[in-house]
């Protein structure tokens, strides 16, 4: 079965992203596929490469990146929600003339069309909100 996952809660402020990670691991373990993970609203903070939690806490952006590398996941961060909240890739940093960019490895910025397309092409869409 083809799943897509939507995360709208910020990591650390809410459990949404951590729950979505565990759910995604089970989806893949059970032999299903994940068409896309879409991060929207405060969920975009899951894509921050600058998140630096204490060593005895999970590094949620890093765990998403690792899962994406293992399973070729498409981790899409909503560009409009992200740029507002200061999550930028290299292109956006250049466009807005910012000194740095902080989108974590294996995430991409893209539009809401990616959410709608995921809804159309997936058998199940599961939202983790806050």
């Amino acid at each position: 079965m083809i799943f897509s996952i939507v995360v709208t809660g910020a990591p650390y402020s809410s459990q949404a992203s951590a729950s979505a990670l565990q759910f995604s691991r089970s989806v893949l373990k059970l032999g299903h596929s994940i068409h896309r993970v879409f991060f929207y609203a405060d969920g975009v903070h899951s894509g921050s490469a600058l998140a630096s939690p204490p060593q005895d806490e999970s590094n949620i952006p890093a765990e998403w990146s690792e899962l994406a590398r293992q399973h070729q996941l498409d981790l899409v961060v909503c560009i409009a929600a992200a740029v507002r909240r200061g999550i930028l890739d290299e292109n956006e940093a250049r466009r807005y003339e910012k000194k740095g960019h902080n989108l974590a490895a294996d995430f991409t910025l893209s539009g809401l069309g990616q959410l709608v397309e995921a809804g159309i092409l997936s058998d199940r869409v599961v939202t983790f909100g806050a």
């Binding site: 709208t8 929207y40 609203a41 405060d42 409009a80 929600a81 539009g111 809401l112 069309g113 959410l115 709608v116 397309e117 809804g119 159309i120």
Partner: peptide, 19 residues
């Protein structure tokens, strides 16, 4: 909160896909 705005933006995106 941004929820109302977020939902509206998604709704408007749907219209492009004619779903």
């Amino acid at each position: 909160s941004s929820a109302a705005r977020d939902a509206l933006d998604v709704a408007l995106t749907f219209s492009v896909f004619e779903q």
